[in-house]
Design a protein around this nucleic acid. Sequence first.
DNA 1: CCACTTAAGCAACGCTGTTGCCAAAGTGCA
DNA 2: TGCACTTTGGCAACAGCGTTGCTTAAGTGG
Lengths: 380, 380
Amino acid sequence: MNRSRTKAPAGVNLPALRHHNAALVLDLLRAAGAEGISRLELAEGTGLTPQAVSKITARLREDGLAAGAGLRPSTGGKPRTVLRLVPDAQFAVGLHLDRDGLTAVLVDLAGRPVAVATAPLDLGAPAERVLADAADAVRDLCAAEPHKPVIGVGVAVPGPLDHRDGVLHRVTGFPRWDGYPLRAALAERTGLPVVLDKDTNAAALALALGGAGGGDFAYLHLGTGLGAGLVLGGEVHRGARTGAGEFGHQTLQLDGPLCGCGGRGCIEALCLAAEARGDRGEAARVLGTGAANLVGLLDIDRVVLGGRTVAADEDAYVRGVRAVIEERAARGGAGAGVTVTVAGGGDRPVAEGAAQLVLAPVFGRVGEEKRVGEEKADRG
Amino acid sequence: MNRSRTKAPAGVNLPALRHHNAALVLDLLRAAGAEGISRLELAEGTGLTPQAVSKITARLREDGLAAGAGLRPSTGGKPRTVLRLVPDAQFAVGLHLDRDGLTAVLVDLAGRPVAVATAPLDLGAPAERVLADAADAVRDLCAAEPHKPVIGVGVAVPGPLDHRDGVLHRVTGFPRWDGYPLRAALAERTGLPVVLDKDTNAAALALALGGAGGGDFAYLHLGTGLGAGLVLGGEVHRGARTGAGEFGHQTLQLDGPLCGCGGRGCIEALCLAAEARGDRGEAARVLGTGAANLVGLLDIDRVVLGGRTVAADEDAYVRGVRAVIEERAARGGAGAGVTVTVAGGGDRPVAEGAAQLVLAPVFGRVGEEKRVGEEKADRG
DNA sequence: CCACTTAAGCAACGCTGTTGCCAAAGTGCA
DNA sequence: TGCACTTTGGCAACAGCGTTGCTTAAGTGG
């Protein structure tokens, strides 16, 4: 269980223990995907007794979250029964509010999108207007798939914000949003629990859960700006004020050219300037140098690139970034074995990651926050 | 409980739950110090029932880890009984192996040193020789204070190393140590459990536990080199290969002056060069720029400076670093409310932090690693 | 067809924190 | 001085967790 000590009591009682272990099993079920996973493999993965796993999976099946999925070939004895997650048991909405558009997805427990909707959006419009557009998108999506239990809405937004309180800060270019309690407003409007986070964090979460699997990594998003989502220890690192990931305005050139932020020699300014003058190699080298700094500082084992600017020439950026990291590793610095890849998939991963913000607690990934004694009391 | 997922089973059974809650209570007892803390405050701090706390503290008292410490003034009813940690119940040895010397401390559960020893050391000597010196220091320290149950030895070493395996990597200036399994060797020699970590991590751990208390922070050590210890979410961040904290060779000046590491424009090179030519203000500004990068990237709320070079002129460095961070915050960047302080105390904090590496698990701070069913079975 | 192997469930168990209740130990007012 | 009240903390019973010991189910292989 999490131990974000310093605040929040971390005492564990039996319901909490039960919930924790159930979430652990669900997480393994999800990771196993459609193939499924046997009870004994679950036991090995959790460190629990096979009998305990049997009890837990029995409860999950009763709740409709897990189901049998055939048998494994025998290895000389009774064949193992394979279990799998029932993706249709619960759904979550992911909302990506960008500067010029809105993307909404309805995903199942496995994280697969079952419905997508996009619409134009003007972040410069009055708050009421934007809020209404967002709420409408959520409502339409839920209406399109009735009878689907939706457990919440995850919202990904560009600017700096407070994830804990669900309050926006000064979104770059739209200072008027500073202090707007988007989470509370949208929660009231939709009647659903809402989680708010930065778009880069949502993207990083999607990457952490999907495909390439675990490990610590940094997602670097180069679009009109440059930001980062950090996944450390398998969880999104948000920092003390949940503002972590300000990567674009790291100083990379002391007393370098002026940046829009007022600083000098920011990675973002250097990178975009190089890109603007057509020197993509230099842009990639700048980005790579920042990435290499990250690799050494945090000892991550994966760098993932994304964003429109990267998408325009994925190869050049991957090669350029990889070159810098490998050069430093060859000199004896950190970075040996670090892989550099691109996220791909355009902007939809951000919306899907936003939905994962809501799903994450189901699988025991962070964000439990004061979950005490909230179980449907009846059983049998 | 920890969730360093991706590896290591995280299932929780009753013994694990018991251990977790006991550690939680012990941690609060330690934080309370000599003043002590009442059962109801413990209940509030853990989220457990007062009755559960009573049971847990009864066990701790039976084991000699906790004891009564008077009464609180009544608030209209029965006065609260105050409990406190019994620091003499267990001890740990902290060992700091530096390039030119060795510091060994014996600390009690509260982290207070009860014995200190220093000796010259030559890291360039044969491994057997260094190992013998280290083992001797441990033995002498334990002998000086017999009847003290010592639960382990924490070792802080300069270079890069693997904390998980307890193996040294290429210590700067002493490449011969690359691959040496110091933890295993010293454990066999002393017959005690040994934990190995970088000196900067040990210092950071000491800071995280002592005095100024929680929060995320970075400890920046500027001596003959420049390194960092990161404390994120109340725990030392070590990264995927436990090599995190390589701060000195972050590029801060693209294509800047050559560094000893072979790179260009490393913070360390810039900082030490400025210091060498007497421009302390510039050295502080360089360090501050790196610190500000860190603050924005990780959203930490504290920067702590240390090391001999900083100690030579603490004020200049604190002011210089603080100036850069505040300037960036004033521009609307991250860093508002970040405090900048110095560690102080010279090198002994590193040895004390090394001892804390061993004590940390007692208080539930990370590093439990496969603790299953190891309890003294008898009771009563 | 039988011996063997592997998987999974049933029942009893030990131990956890919780609940309900009561004794202990103070304060404050009559 | 005495009684009502408040607050603390322990005792006992309890529900629920994973574990253990054993039995049953369901295969393989000679």
